[in-house]
Amino acid sequence: MKLAYRNRRGGFIATVAAVLALPTGGGLLLWPHGDDIHITSMDDSKAVVISRCVPTLRGTGTPPKGHHLWITVEFLDKAGDNRVIFVREATVRNGGWLADQLNVGGAGHVGNTYTLTVVDVDASTHTMLTTAVIDMYKTSTKTQPAGTDLWRFSSHGYPTGAQPRDEVSVSRGTDQRSCAEISTGQKPTP
């Protein structure tokens, strides 16, 4: 009788393990998905110090059909609340993605910490972002002090149609130039 119970218990454990390994959402729970989205241009296992302008953020993976990848910058505001700024849509091709000219924080934020996140965005959220995000960095407009620039779409969290997929924590170094200032050839602020 005890042997029959042990065999049933072993069978139950094997059944649970098999159910956990069933394909869900296009891949197996226990193994990486072929379309996993990761940041590859920065190694989060070490302290990552960046300039105000990140020239390019790269990664691997492809979003599901009809979805888009966006890069966000997360930080704590003066009140200690989490802020999420949608900075730029990434360009996806050949199993990888990249986003150029990402401004992280404003002038004078030396030592502040941020999280750069690649986000899988569904079609309706993408439409909202493309009409709400203002990009001042590819224009010849001079970068203004904080509070004067036109700012990007910002919220305390992610909208329902936006799923964070990978992130890297960074801290700001001493180069205070925005991407617009770098493209016009201004020298770093000492």
Rank of each mutant, 00 (worst) to 15 (best):
P145E: 10
V73E: 04
T72Y: 00
K187R: 08
R165M: 15
T160I: 04
P63C: 09
K65F: 12
A90D: 01
L76M: 15
Q101F: 06
G11R: 09
S124E: 15
L102A: 10
P32H: 12
D122Q: 06
Q144K: 14
T115A: 10
V49K: 11
L57A: 02
D120W: 01
S140F: 07
T127N: 11
G95R: 07
S178E: 07
P32F: 08
R6M: 03
F153Y: 12
S171C: 09
T160F: 02
L116W: 03
V110L: 15
G108S: 07
G80D: 09
S45E: 11
F86N: 00
I182K: 05
T91W: 07
S183N: 11
L150T: 08
G157V: 05
C179T: 01
T189Q: 06
P188D: 06
T56E: 15
D135Q: 02
T15V: 11
V121L: 14
R93T: 03
H156L: 13
I182C: 01
L57K: 01
N7A: 15
T130C: 04
T117V: 11
Q144V: 04
E167K: 12
N94F: 10
C53R: 06
A146V: 13
G27V: 10
D36F: 14
F75E: 06
N94D: 15
N7F: 15
R152Q: 14
H156R: 13
A162K: 02
D175F: 00
S51I: 02
N7I: 15
N94P: 01
S178T: 15
T148G: 08
T131A: 04
T24P: 01
G80Q: 11
A107I: 07
V54W: 04
A90E: 02
R52D: 06
E181H: 06
G80T: 11
V16H: 09
E181L: 05
G111A: 03
L57D: 01
L3W: 10
G61K: 00
K46I: 12
C179I: 01
L150V: 12
M1V: 10
V16Q: 13
T113Q: 05
I71V: 15
V121T: 12
P145C: 12
I13G: 03
H109Q: 15
T113R: 05
Y5N: 09
R93G: 02
V84I: 14
M136I: 12
P32N: 15
S178M: 08
D77I: 13
D122G: 06
G34Q: 14
T56G: 10
P159W: 06
R52H: 09
K187W: 05
E74T: 00
S154N: 03
I134N: 13
K138Y: 14
K187D: 12
D122V: 05
T117S: 10
D44W: 01
D77W: 13
P63D: 05
P64S: 08
P145M: 11
Q176F: 00
S140K: 10
L30W: 06
G61L: 04
T113F: 03
A162W: 00
S155K: 10
F86S: 00
H126E: 11
T40R: 08
D43R: 09
